Measured scan of single mutants.
Amino acid sequence: QVALSRTQVCGILREELFQGDAFHQSDTHIFIIMGASGDLAKKKIYPTIWWLFRDGLLPENTFIVGYARSRLTVADIRKQSEPFFKATPEEKLKLEDFFARNSYVAGQYDDAASYQRLNSHMNALHLGSQANRLFYLALPPTVYEAVTKNIHESCMSQIGWNRIIVEKPFGRDLQSSDRLSNHISSLFREDQIYRIDHYLGKEMVQNLMVLRFANRIFGPIWNRDNIACVILTFKEPFGTEGRGGYFDEFGIIRDVMQNHLLQMLCLVAMEKPASTNSDDVRDEKVKVLKCISEVQANNVVLGQYVGNPDGEGEATKGYLDDPTVPRGSTTATFAAVVLYVENERWDGVPFILRCGKALNERKAEVRLQFHDVAGDIFHQQCKRNELVIRVQPNEAVYTKMMTKKPGMFFNPEESELDLTYGNRYKNVKLPDAYERLILDVFCGSQMHFVRSDELREAWRIFTPLLHQIELEKPKPIPYIYGSRGPTEADELMKRVGFQYEGTYKWVNPHKL
């Protein structure tokens, strides 16, 4: 086992960053958080920038500027975001240094004079007029057009580079997404736009490419001749908990499936790229999406959770019991969808996408189930092999396979070949997804960000279904809070070829 401390991990990262040409360590950078008073800024962006600063992973002359409508001070920003920093008493001095680099400007999102004030403020910072500028839009999409237009007109660096990070949702359907994309691309070049999907920053999602293309053993079996089906799962054990009003506007397909799960599907299904260059990788992902037809209604199961009468606390409440959810809402909190990649490698292999709230566990994984062994000599005792990439929690890679049961006879039983990170790298604290992705933006690497043509294809696949749901308002199937979801989803999976045995229990190697 390799035991690495946080300091050692960050030392390795620093070495990698400083050796590259793309990370300008000594240049002045300004990180501007648009929507600095909001939840995302408070819980994710400010803490992430602090962790990067604490670990010495930001360029040395980096300033952080918050911008929002609320009249706040840096002290206010500190008060609301610091509880999420997880700072230790030993880091007190470092924390003071961090907040000394912070400033805040209040202004409207659609007022040109406010942006001119913001620009004057940035120019007044040390070497601010020639600094590289990175704008993070932690804002609702309704203000994107006004904000990007004003940034472009008043706040661009004339000497350094300018980059803009856009948070999902990128529209509600193909038409609104196209409108937003066309607007942003009329102001910024594609190499300046970073559409963030934080799932692409997760260690195991990034590991998929290495697993596939750096190991000879997987190449020959990664196709329709050997793989019976692919299941991509995202499960949350909690409901909307008072935030249903926002969720109800989008629903589970827009929230998770059309982005996170579809991105994971691309990494499983794509061909080997010409290189690890950002556009070479994204070219292959677009090719996969172009091979997927629009979702067919007979390959869809929609569910909505109801309270568990035997549960406790939140578990007793259904989705419609959330006071922020519109009365009688038919918005799905669970969806199972089957897609097919219609190309030579994957023809006929079902890709089953499942996601839901208020389920029995927290889990995100990719599961490849292989065909049955031909010419069975073990009297149907063999179960199908599976390769599982567990994204969260407890990152893991393992192969479910058959071995001989101890004893006199040739009785096979299920076991696993474990390729888990935790076994080799004991207690290594890896940077989280937002840390990686923000560092990628500083480096100018777009590999783990969504390109406009990729986004367009993703919406093309799901828009007809979303429009049909909005028009017909089908009643989702009720499922109990804390269950596996509607049984109809299991029946759909069985119908397209997935075999669920229920006889195997994964042993978490992190707890051995």
Rank of each mutant, 00 (worst) to 15 (best):
D440L: 02
E491C: 08
P406I: 14
V391S: 14
V306R: 09
Q258T: 15
N385F: 03
K272S: 11
M401E: 05
D322Q: 06
G311K: 11
I292H: 01
Y481G: 04
C382W: 06
E284C: 10
E491D: 08
L430T: 13
C355N: 01
T487I: 09
D418A: 08
T324N: 13
Q258F: 12
E342H: 08
K426F: 15
A396R: 13
L437T: 13
A364T: 14
K429I: 14
E284W: 02
L353T: 01
F409P: 11
L430A: 15
G497P: 10
V325S: 07
R384V: 02
Q296P: 08
K272E: 15
Q380A: 08
L419H: 11
R460A: 02
V388I: 13
G311F: 04
C266E: 10
N343Y: 00
R456C: 10
D322Y: 07
H448M: 15
Q380D: 14
A358P: 01
V388C: 12
R456N: 09
I352A: 01
H448W: 13
M493P: 03
N259A: 14
E457A: 04
A458F: 15
E501D: 10
G356D: 03
Q304N: 01
P478Q: 10
S329Y: 00
V391H: 15
N343Q: 04
R384S: 14
L267N: 13
V325L: 09
D347F: 09
K287C: 06
W459I: 11
V397T: 15
T331Q: 07
R456S: 12
F410L: 11
T420S: 13
V306L: 08
F334H: 04
G356Y: 00
Q499C: 12
M447K: 04
M270G: 04
H379W: 05
I389Y: 15
V397S: 11
Y398E: 13
F449P: 00
K285W: 08
G482T: 04
G407S: 15
K290H: 14
S483P: 01
I292S: 02
G497L: 14
Y340W: 06
E488C: 09
L265P: 02
K429A: 15
E342R: 06
P393M: 01
L265I: 08
R384K: 12
L417D: 05
G348Y: 01
E361M: 11
R436M: 12
L368N: 01
V306W: 04
Y481D: 00
D255G: 11
P486I: 12
Y398W: 08
G328N: 01
E314G: 10
L417G: 06
Y504W: 14
R484Y: 10
P326D: 06
M264Q: 07
F498E: 15
G307P: 07
D255T: 14
D453W: 01
E491Q: 07
L353F: 07
P323H: 08
E386H: 07
N508G: 09
P478A: 06
Q446Y: 06
H510G: 13
R282M: 03
R424M: 06
K363Q: 15
T487P: 12
R327A: 11
E284R: 05
E312Q: 10
R345P: 01
V281K: 02
Q468L: 13
D440I: 02
Q369L: 15
E435A: 14
A364Y: 14
V388W: 04
W459M: 14
E491N: 10
N508L: 11
L466C: 08
R327M: 14
F351L: 02
R384T: 09
Y319I: 01
K317M: 09
K290Q: 12
E491T: 09
D322R: 05
R460M: 02
F409Y: 13
K400T: 15
H448V: 14
P476Y: 02
K426T: 14
Y425P: 14
L437E: 08
T463S: 12
K287F: 03
F410R: 08
T333Y: 01
A274P: 07
L320I: 12
R354Q: 13
A374K: 13
S293F: 04
D280I: 08
Q446I: 07
V295L: 08
K272N: 10
S293H: 09
D418F: 13
K505M: 12
E386A: 07
H467L: 10
L492D: 00
G375R: 12
Y481L: 06
T420I: 07
A335E: 02
P412T: 13
D453R: 08
T276Q: 09
P476G: 02
K285P: 02
D347N: 14
E472P: 04
E342L: 07
N298T: 10
N360G: 13
I438S: 00
F410K: 06
K272P: 13
Q304A: 04
R460K: 09
L353W: 01
I469G: 05
T316V: 05
S278P: 09
E470K: 02
N508P: 15
A332V: 04
